[in-house]
Amino acid sequence: MKRFLRDYARSPAAVVGLLLLILVIGMAGTADWFFPRDPLALAGRPLQWPGANPRFWLGTDNSGRDIAAQIFHGARIALLIGLVATSIAVGIGIGIGAVAGYYGGIVDDVLMRVTEAFQTLPNFLLLLVLVSVFGSEMSTVVVAIGVVSWPAPARLTRAEFLSLRSREFVEACRTLGMRDRQIIFREILPNALPPVIVYASVVMAVAILLESALAFLRLSDPNVASWGNLIGLGRDVLRVQWYVSAIPGVAILLTVLAVSLVGQGLNDALNPRLKGR
């Protein structure tokens, strides 16, 4: 553990990423404390520039809501979307990848065809279809993002299982008469997990970007303080009050950057051989 921390801290980018991530988590944690009021409630005169009014240090949007409050509460939404959608995607991916990789043969063929089908269909398009069918409440959107993001983790898990399933320790388990389910989850999965966990950071970054794009198009939940919603709103006043769109965009950028830097840092610390790539 100590060595892992030292390996991680050796990369400045990974440390910056971790600090940024702590900052975003801190914003999410203190949102209620700094901004106890509903972030979507009317707070003051609309379209005040940042700094113009000491009460709103990031200004107000077109309907007079405090942008700083929306940024802080938005951090919660972004992290929530990232975590839940990623868990769903990685969960489905591990399940399908493990079964396909472990059993091989016709099971593998069928599951891989389905995976390919999902990869052939542009995932944002599938997201649009899902949202238009099931509506755009936050819970639906999060599940939909998870459902369109599983193929890559599934392929990764399958590849790991393919290389692990004929190892000696697996043969030994079979000889001992262990059941398939036990071998898959107790024996092979812990060995296959590290690269999948590292890849989860990519899934999380993409999930946050997908939701913000959806919110920007006004197809996500409008009753939630999502950064994407605010960018979409600011588009109406883009020519003059461009800060309304600019500020939440920076928040998304930094969050996604933090998640990918931490992911890369973990990857480098876990696979020291790949360092310098």
Binding site: S212, F216, V256, L261
Partner: peptide, 21 residues
């Protein structure tokens, strides 16, 4: 790294502000 983390629609909006407006 920065480009990878930039939401494309936001980059587009900012580009409009800078280059068009």
């Amino acid at each position: 790294l920065l480009f990878y983390a930039t939401p494309s629609f936001w980059f587009g909006l900012m580009a409009i502000v800078l280059f068009s407006v």
